[in-house]
């Protein structure tokens, strides 16, 4: 019942937020980062990279909380995250 209402202090809560950087041409299209991102930040893009794969694309930039999971999972070191200074709130 309580989860139907938005908490009243939500705008005052600060959380870290990250910026995702994708080195498109290193990607081999395995999709791990898209699959495992706990915040649903990424999606597959339509474009082709130099190797002929579809690299990921940032779909929900505000959702990233800088957890670095994608960075750790990527077998080709093709994705990394930097911390954004202006921390923003977004509750799930």
């Amino acid at each position: 019942m309580i989860f139907e209402r938005k908490p009243l202090d939500i705008d005052k809560i600060k959380v870290t937020s990250g910026e995702v950087h994708i080195i498109k041409d290193r990607c081999k299209g395995c999709g791990f980062c898209i699959e495992y991102c706990p915040r649903d930040v990424l999606e597959l893009s339509e474009e082709f990279n130099i190797k002929g794969y579809h690299p990921p694309r940032v779909k929900n930039p505000d959702n990233c909380v800088e957890c670095h999971l994608c960075e750790m999972l990527c077998p080709e070191f093709a994705i990394y995250v930097t911390k954004k200074e202006d921390a923003k709130v977004s509750a799930r």
Binding site: I2, P7, I10, T16, S17, A91
Partner: peptide, 9 residues
Amino acid sequence: ACPVVVPNE
């Protein structure tokens, strides 16, 4: 440090 915000029961 935790980045996840949820309603407090």
